[in-house]
Amino acid sequence: MISISDVRKHYQMGPTVVHALDGVSLQIEAAEFIAIIGPSGSGKSTLMNIIGCLDSPDSGSYELAGEEVGELLPDELAEVRNLHVGFVFQTFNLLPRATAIENVELPLIYRGVGARRRRAAAEQMLERVGLADRMTHLPTELSGGQRQRVAIARALVGRPSMILADEPTGALDTRTGEEIMALFEELNRDGVTLILVTHDQALAAHAGRMVRLLDGLIVETRAGVAV
């Protein structure tokens, strides 16, 4: 489904050039659960953002479902994100003034789904992540784990072909993190493609495959034990 070949991305920082990605090639199949690990600054988020069509590479090719992403216009990229990608961020990125259910509805708003159907879909997703009784809470009225569940419900509500989770448990305590991981595994069992960025080896062990990045290069690929 995803085919990345020789993707590069660098940043000019004063006199030095930082190679965030230095020629990365990677294939990801539908319904796969893949973990991307590596130390901080190794290029994990950069790769993730490119996969999610938020960022574009300086060179190299990225094909999504047979289509070359580099040729898409900004509005088309927005549409791909809206229809095919569900983001889960380390810092949740919920809109602070919107309630849980309003946050979950957002992707459907940009798809032009009417209020009633939107609400129904959002309610269903919040129930799915175990927040049936927190729908009208504001993010500040929720715990970290609950906030991340809202974010997951938001990523799922549009039934995207892939979920991109960038250190989703990074801001959570171990136990809550495990709960979130369990939720991800459950989703993956239902057929959602899951790409998980983490620097935690133990979490990565849940994945079907693990890719290790170092200084913008893939240095190791390993099939996991799970699945």
Partner: peptide, 16 residues
């Protein structure tokens, strides 16, 4: 700005 970024990540187009 961050809110705008989130909206765009979720599929908001420029005109939205």
């Amino acid at each position: 700005t961050r809110e705008i970024g989130v909206r765009m990540a979720l599929g908001a187009k420029g005109r939205h």
